[in-house]
């Protein structure tokens, strides 16, 4: 029975590249009396990069934070509607938000390594979730995570020096490695390059592109060029609503909505 299911899933993965891992249905988010998101419905395809664009305060970060329930930590925040992850409503009563966040990793706008060693930064997630039975397994996880994040060459001889001593770009890749170490299915990125210089940005973008082989990535970005460069799907948010969503290429070349047109040509934003 179980084996059969897995087979089916694998078949689906290979057969249909656009299998939807997240389905959002009519989501409203309120901060106190303020409505930050209005009737948002969006499907996120598996193993692709989806970028969320839009002017400041349009609700794109709010939406991103709904997917791993980081909004729960904000006082007075209320979420209505459904977000289905593999068919399960993540706001359902039986879902533990902590386990959800282990499945849906997150990378933040400003690199935020813990003021601990590089090794401990990455090992923290596996430690709290018990992903490694012993020290060797933990070492293994740390090294593969660093490798996946393309950081291994730069830091392998100083794993036990502080993570805050790295450069901004390295710190951000450390944070990505840290997220990978928990073996998530989905990685949320909230403007991960906005605090980085162009060279570091290029490296992180390259990394994101490689990661889509194995992970579903949702990225909030201010830079339309970045969205166009790296993502397959794009959703344009405006005033708490999704104006337009679809293939990145189509959205940037022939947007169907006037507001999208206005935003990508730089008339407002």
């Amino acid at each position: 029975m179980q084996i059969q299911q897995i087979d089916e899933q694998q078949a689906a993965r290979q057969g249909d590249a656009a299998e939807m891992i997240i389905k959002t249905r009519d989501v409203d988010v309120f901060y106190g009396d303020n409505q930050a998101l209005k009737h948002v419905s969006l499907d996120i395809p598996k193993h692709q990069i989806t970028s969320l664009i839009g002017p400041s305060g349009c609700g794109k970060s709010t939406y991103l934070r709904c997917i791993n329930r980081m909004n729960d930590t904000v006082d007075g925040c209320r979420v209505e509607g459904e977000i289905l992850l593999d068919g399960v409503n993540i706001y359902g009563p039986e879902v533990d938000e902590v386990l959800l966040r282990a499945r849906v990793g997150m990378v933040f706008q400003k690199p935020n390594p813990f003021p601990k060693s590089i090794y401990d930064n990455i090992a923290y997630g596996p430690r709290i979730h018990g992903l490694a039975a012993n020290k060797d397994e933990l070492d293994e996880i740390v090294l593969t995570s660093l490798e996946k994040a393309g950081l291994i060459k730069e830091v392998q001889d100083r794993l036990h020096s502080s993570g805050t001593g790295l450069s901004g770009g390295q710190q951000q890749r450390l944070c990505i490695a840290r997220a990978l170490a928990v073996r998530p299915d989905i990685i949320l990125m909230d403007e991960p390059c906005s605090a980085l210089d162009p060279i570091a940005t290029a490296k992180v973008e390259e990394l994101i592109d490689e990661l889509k082989e194995n992970y579903t990535i949702i990225i909030v970005t201010h830079s339309m060029q970045q969205a166009a460069r790296i993502s397959q799907k794009t959703a344009f948010f405006h005033l708490g609503e999704i104006v337009e969503a679809g293939d990145t290429e189509k959205l940037f070349t022939s947007p169907s909505d006037e507001r999208t047109q206005g935003y990508i040509t730089g008339r407002f934003g």
Partner: peptide
């Protein structure tokens, strides 16, 4: 202690 530290931990699936 800056909020980014709390966020980082929560984002990795640590409880509050």
């Amino acid at each position: 202690v800056p909020d980014s530290i709390r966020q980082a931990a929560l984002g990795l699936g640590a409880s509050k």
